[in-house]
Each structure stands twice: as structure tokens, then as C-alpha cells.
Design a protein around this nucleic acid. Structure first.
Length: 759
DNA sequence: GATTAGGCTTCG
């Protein structure tokens, strides 16, 4: 066999034949010797493109480097492969591969004048010479075969997702767009729902069943690439779907560009050729240009007070709470922006190293998992690495007996499997686990304890206190008015300065203070939210919906110009409203390379729509730009109106700093499916405004009173200013945060007649 | 051999 792919376990080749041969150092090679029972081994450092001789014989030239620990003077040799062997090798060789070679001929100990190749050797290999090449597959934990011949036993064909027909059994490749990790169905099997997409931009939802958990695809995150064999295609409710059929098998690959192509499967035998390798790489390239990277994977330090996200963590402790809920104590080495709630349990039932958990203090969080996830949680091993999908956070304010409030961040994995809710154990070989381990090892516990002493002494004193009731509740942690309630993670190097000292000194200076928040202004959220220009630093109010509707109507009084419809950039449609004076609304669907993308990737330009219509359309389409018919072409409205609306978020531009360019410039965006606001703004000549919270805090530390002007562009206690208008939950969280800083019931400087709460 | 689920957040 001229070319073999072989498994490498801890660097030991697993091929009998190779073990029988004698391994040679590069320096031992010389012309004229018989190398049929000897082999050399090295790392592929260079692969030249395949060339052909005059008579048509293919030639492949590679450079091979000896492992660094070798004492050999000759570090690099060159190998020339001829004929079929050259063609086969070029299919499987990848730079960095380790290969072994036997049955070759040493051409010359080159005495070239070239200094670099003074000691270089050329070897010649071709099939007729009984040359054999062994390619060591990198990191092949998942390969169960002893060795694989390049000659495929079966040739598989793969059907593009836009060519599927009901009633057929097919093989497919795809990028995972959505998945539910395997869970026990109500029948006899495990179930996993996986939605994939390929270059045809067609999606396919697959229902995968197996009595064997391991037999279902080993998907860790969206963007992974899967290969399904023997998938049955059927039609359900007019939608094409895939379902496991007899003999179903799958391979899963990491979707990251450049990552090693290692198939994940529990199958002992499977077919994997260089064609598969290329297919995976092609899908990776396509996905990197057409699918926005999954953003649901978060670190604990980045979680918002109200959201769903995926968490990669290590399990530190677990406890049965009751039949319907189960407690998991986990960490990921980072600190949440708010202290985690603490679930009360009887101390006897906690499995895990309690003293270790205590040492980690606020680096651990408590997660309650419910219903169907309880049975999974019961079998989890303390110390294992987990990914918890669609974990829900909720900020809760708790009134303790002394009427003071505190905030706790709750973590829930609700019952059911919608949105892929579930838990999956990650193997140690997972690259995300690898990264996590490094973070966990580098956590400085001494610093952590100091931080807790400074900021949260109440946690240290009361942790852990378990009630004997066994019911779920929060630690009754009292917010002591004399102690800081927030976590300071930055500026630790600054000494604390009393306000009276600051008042005597000249600005600008940096200080660290500790003071009570006596009051804050403005008193309503809408007044505190502003639009800020990063260029001219102007601040302006966010237009009210009422005014915006008028601006939109005024901006598009002209009737849509039919001459400006259906261009190379977009397809157009005119809608006429009923009972509204036959108002005409023109919608222009922007194409991607001449093809209309799916609605969730599609940008539409709208002429004459109302705010409500635009908001409704922004739910269905990726982005909406309000426009009007101009003389040269479609143009943006006055910048009093948003220049882009995405998921109900209105993006504004600065009137002073922008100089508008024609809509046709959208053509210069290469990828017309991702519509990043800053990129859209750039091509349209707009300087985008950012949403900011602007507030004045009146601070008092007993030595003086200081007015502090706060402007936060991105995240005020993890709450993004740009999203607060579209989320009732975030507004509630903001309410709680402000109420904790400055409890409304006991405000000292409460204005007379001011009964409104903050929001 | 059929069933499971058929993505589309809980309400603790």
C-alpha cells in the first residue's frame, strides 16, 4: 500500500509494519543504499504545487523537517513524489503533518553552492519503487480505526440542501445553525433536533433519534459542521425535514477556520477521505463569510441582568433541592457583575468540596435546573466541565428583615428543551475546556479574597449558612448602609480620598471614593438616555416615538418614483394601504450578488412607511432603512430619523458630522447579509451616534458633597444603553439597581411633589 | 416495529 493514514497515540505509530522497520536519522541517509526496510520520519514544512513532466507524470515536491530534539546537522530534506503517489499525496498532505517514508531512493548529497542547502538531501519516491508514505493524523482521539486505506470502500455522494426530495434517503453536509443537545424523549429514544444550512443558503431541520446517547451528533456549538449519512427526507406541514433512518451515522467537526479537521463520532468505523477534509474546509470558509458568529457563549463577567446565554463552566458542587429542581454550583474563573443568589439547601446533601467552594467565594454561582434537566444533573460528576445552554439570568432585589435591599443574580435552567435548553458534558479534549482550564488555573485567590473583604464582607460572614427547611430562597444578606454594596474590579491601585479633599483640589484628577448616593438626576430613564456623537461630542435627546412618526411621514411625502424601482441593487414592491387615502409604501429588497437573501439576512429600504410598520418589518427582516425618492436615486431621510433599524433598535447619525452619500453605495459592502451598523454608516457617509446614559450623582461621604457627572456609552452595570428602550426587563433591572443605590423610600433629598419612581 | 419531535425561552 503506497499511502496510509495512520493513527498516532501519544506519538507512537500504531502500524505494525512501521514498527518492524528501522528508523533512520536524516544524517544517516546516503545515495546507493537500500531503504526498503528502513524509514525516516519528519514534519511537512513545505508542499509545492503539483507539477507535470513533459510525458504527463505528476511530480510533487515537499520539504521534510526532522524533529528539533534531533542532533542531526541535516534538519531539512526534500522529497520528490512521482506519478499516482504524487497525486494521492497532494490530496492528504497538510503543512505540519508528521509523515514517515520507506522504500525511497536518495538522489544526491547536494554539494550545491547555495549555503542554505549545503547539507540538503533529495529523496525520490514512487509506487513502482515500493515506496510507502505514512501520514500521522494529528490529534486523532476520535479515530477508532487502526489505519485507513485511501481507497474508499464506498463512494458517498452528498446532496445539496436545495435539492432534497421527500421520501429519499440522502447524505448531507451542513453548518449547524441551531441544535438541541441530546435529551431523553417521551418515547424510548434520545432525541436531538439539529438545523443545518449549506452554501445553497437552504436550511434543513433534522429530527435525530437514537436509543444510544453517544450515537447522536456530538455538537458543542452553533457553527459546528456535520456530515449525516442515511438521513431520510420527509415533508411535514409543507416543510421539508430530515429524520434518522436505519443506519444513520454522523460526523461533527469544529467550524472554526484553521482548526484541525478532527471528526467527532462514537462510531468505530467510518469513512473519511481527503474529499471530506476539503468539504469541511469549504463549509468553514463559506460559514465565515455568511453566518454571523454565535454570540450566545458568554463569560460570567459579561452576563447581563436579564438574558439567555450559553455557559462553559466547571461543576464544583451539586445538591438535590426537590423533585423538580436541582442545584449546580459552578465557576468559570470570572466574577459576575452582581453577586450570585445563594440557594438554601440542607448542608448534608451538597456533593462537592465545600471548603474549596468557600475559598472561591463569589467566583461561584448557583444555578437551579428544573424538571427534565434534574435527571441529567443527578448524574453529573463534580469537577467535570459543562456547557449549559440557554441559561437564564434574572436580577432580583430582596428585602431583608431590616427593610434594606440587595441585589442577587439568579441563574435558571428552565424546564423543557426550547431554544436548545440543556446540559452537555464537554470532554477534556475540547478546545474551549482547554482555555477554561487555563483561566481557572490563573485565578488569583488571594486577590479574590481581598476584593471580597473590601467590598462584600457580608458575604464572607454569612457564607455558607444553610437553612434546615430545604426550601429555595436567598441568603438573607443584609445591605449594610455603612459598607459598599458594589464590586470594584478596577482602579484598585488608587487610594481612597475623602470628598472634602477632592473639593479643595483642581480638576482634572483621578480619585477613588466611597460615599453614599444621596440622589441622582434625571429622574426618568428617558431623560437620562441620550445620543452622543463620538466626533463632535454633542449630546441630544432620543426622539420620542410620536415625533418620530411625524418625521418619517414628513420625510417621505413624495410618491415613490417608479424609475427608481427594481435596480441591480434591489427588487421593489409597492403596497397600497386601504382606508388611509391609498398611501403608497415602496419596499426595496436589497440583493446579495443578484440573489435575494432569506428575510432574516435581508436589508430592506422603505419609502413612506409609518413607525409601526417599520418596527414590524424590522422583526421580520434583518435591517430596515427609511428612504425617499430623490432626483438621482433613493436617498436617506433627514438625519432626524434613524438611518437604520435593527431588531427595533434605532440607529441615528450625527447631523453635523455626516455628509450623506447615495444609497447605491451599499453596493460597496461585500457581504450583503450581515449589515453591521458601523459598516452601513460608513458607506453612507454617516457618523453614527451612540446611546449613552447621562446622569448626575450627588455623592456624600460625611466630609463633603460632590456632584458627579456620569456618562456611560456601553454598559451601565452590564445594561447596554442601546437596548434598554426595547426591553422591559432591562428597564426593570435598571430600576432595581438605582433603587438599591438610592432606595426610594428613604431618599433624603426627595423633591417635594416628586412621586414618580425612577422609571 | 412504532414512538419520540416536528427548534421559537419560565413564570420556579
Amino acid at each position: 500500500m503506497p499511502l496510509e493514514l495512520i493513527k498516532e497515540v501519544s506519538g507512537v505509530p500504531e502500524v505494525q509494519r512501521l514498527n518492524k522497520l528501522q528508523k533512520l536519522d536524516f544524517r544517516a541517509l546516503q545515495p546507493g543504499c537500500d531503504y526498503s526496510k528502513k524509514y525516516i520520519q519528519g514534519i511537512l514544512s513545505l508542499i509545492s504545487p503539483l507539477t507535470h513532466r513533459g510525458n504527463g507524470t505528476a511530480i510533487l515536491k515537499i520539504a521534510l523537517q526532522e524533529k528539533e530534539n534531533s542532533n542531526s546537522e541535516v534538519k531539512t530534506i526534500y522529497v520528490l513524489f512521482f506519478g499516482k503517489l504524487a497525486k494521492d499525496c497532494v490530496q492528504v498532505f497538510y503543512q505540519g503533518d508528521t509523515i514517515a517514508l520507506t522504500g525511497f531512493v536518495v538522489l544526491s548529497a547536494s554539494s550545491s553552492t547555495n549555503r542554505d542547502s549545503k547539507h540538503s538531501l533529495f529523496l525520490k519516491a514512487f509506487e513502482d519503487f515500493k515506496s510507502t508514505v505514512y501520514v500521522f493524523l494529528k490529534s486523532v482521539r476520535n479515530f477508532k480505526t487502526e489505519s485507513m486505506s485511501l481507497v474508499p470502500a464506498t463512494h458517498y455522494t452528498y446532496t445539496p440542501l436545495n435539492q432534497l426530495k421527500g421520501g429519499t434517503i440522502v447524505n448531507v453536509y451542513g453548518v449547524v445553525k441551531f441544535f438541541k443537545p441530546p435529551y431523553l424523549s417521551k418515547g424510548t429514544d434520545y432525541c436531538s433536533v439539529v438545523t443545518i444550512v449549506d452554501e445553497t443558503n437552504v436550511k434543513l431541520t433534522c429530527l435525530l433519534f437514537s436509543g444510544n446517547y453517544e450515537a447522536l451528533p456530538i455538537i458543542y456549538k452553533n457553527g459546528d459542521i456535520v456530515r449525516f449519512h442515511r438521513l431520510k427526507i420527509q415533508v411535514y406541514k409543507k416543510e421539508t425535514q430530515g429524520i434518522t433512518s436505519s443506519g444513520f451515522a454522523s460526523l461533527t467537526f469544529e467550524g472554526t477556520l484553521g482548526a484541525p479537521v478532527i471528526p467527532r463520532t462514537s462510531n468505530k468505523y467510518f469513512n473519511f477521505t481527503s474529499e471530506d477534509h476539503k468539504r469541511v474546509e469549504a463549509l468553514r470558509v463559506w460559514a465565515s463569510n455568511h453566518i454571523s458568529p454565535s454570540s450566545t457563549l458568554l463569560k460570567l463577567c459579561d452576563v447581563q441582568p436579564m438574558q439567555y446565554f450559553d455557559l462553559t463552566c466547571q461543576l464544583l458542587g451539586k445538591a438535590e433541592v426537590d423533585g423538580a429542581s436541582f442545584l449546580l454550583k459552578v465557576w468559570d474563573g470570572t466574577r459576575t457583575p452582581f453577586p450570585s443568589w445563594r440557594v438554601l439547601i440542607q448542608d448534608l446533601v451538597l456533593e462537592g468540596d465545600l471548603s474549596h467552594i468557600q475559598r472561591l467565594q463569589n467566583l461561584t454561582v448557583d444555578i437551579l435546573v428544573y424538571d427534565n434537566h434534574v435527571q441529567v444533573a443527578r448524574f453529573l460528576k463534580v469537577g467535570s466541565f459543562l456547557r449549559i445552554y440557554s441559561l437564564h439570568t434574572k436580577l432580583q432585589s430582596v428585602n431583608s428583615e431590616s427593610q434594606s435591599t440587595l441585589l442577587g443574580l439568579e441563574f435558571h435552567l428552565h424546564g423543557g428543551t426550547s431554544y436548545g435548553r440543556g446540559i452537555r458534558v464537554l470532554p477534556e479534549s475540547n478546545s474551549d475546556v482547554d482555555q477554561l482550564k487555563k483561566v481557572l488555573e490563573s485565578v488569583d485567590l488571594t486577590a479574590n479574597q481581598q476584593l471580597d473583604r473590601i467590598c462584600l464582607p457580608e458575604y464572607e460572614d454569612s457564607f455558607p449558612t444553610f437553612s434546615s427547611s430545604g426550601s429555595v430562597s436567598l441568603y438573607e444578606v443584609e445591605r449594610c448602609q455603612q459598607l459598599s454594596a458594589t464590586i470594584l474590579t478596577d482602579h484598585q491601585y488608587l487610594e481612597k480620598t475623602p470628598l472634602c479633599a477632592i473639593l479643595k483640589q483642581k480638576a482634572p484628577q483621578q480619585y477613588r471614593i466611597r460615599a453614599k448616593l444621596r440622589s441622582y438626576k434625571p429622574r426618568t430613564l428617558f431623560q437620562s438616555l441620550k445620543l452622543h456623537c463620538p466626533k463632535c461630542h454633542s449630546l441630544q435627546d432620543v426622539p420620542h416615538d410620536r415625533d418620530l412618526d411625524i418625521i418619517l411621514q414628513d420625510g417621505a411625502t413624495r410618491t415613490p418614483d417608479t424609475k427608481l424601482q427594481n435596480t441591480s441593487l434591489y427588487d421593489s414592491e409597492i403596497w397600497t394601504t386601504k382606508d388611509q387615502g391609498e398611501r403608497k409604501v415602496a419596499i426595496h429588497f436589497v440583493k446579495n450578488n443578484g440573489v435575494l437573501p432569506l428575510s432574516n439576512n435581508c436589508l430592506i429600504l422603505i419609502e413612506g412607511g409609518t413607525l409601526t410598520e417599520i418596527c414590524n418589518l424590522s422583526n421580520k427582516f434583518h435591517s430596515v432603512i427609511p428612504v425617499r425618492s430623490g432626483i438621482e436615486g433613493l436617498e436617506l431621510l433627514d438625519l432626524s430619523a434613524p438611518f437604520l433599524i435593527q431588531r427595533k433598535i434605532q440607529h441615528y447619525g450625527c447631523k453635523q458630522c455626516s455628509s450623506l452619500r447615495p444609497m447605491q453605495n451599499l453596493n460597496s459592502l461585500v457581504d450583503k447579509t450581515s449589515w453591521i451598523p458601523s459598516s452601513v454608516a460608513e458607506v453612507l457617509g454617516i457618523v453614527p451616534l451612540q446611546y449613552v446614559f447621562v446622569m448626575t450623582f450627588t455623592l456624600d461621604d460625611g466630609t463633603g458633597v460632590l456632584e458627579a457627572f456620569l456618562m456611560d456609552s456601553d454598559k451601565f452595570f452590564q445594561i447596554p444603553a442601546s437596548e434598554i428602550l426595547i426591553s422591559d426587563d432591562l428597564q426593570r433591572s435598571m430600576d432595581m439597581i438605582m433603587d438599591m443605590f438610592c432606595p426610594s423610600g428613604i431618599k433624603i433629598d426627595q423633591n417635594l411633589g416628586e412621586h414618580k419612581k425612577f422609571f
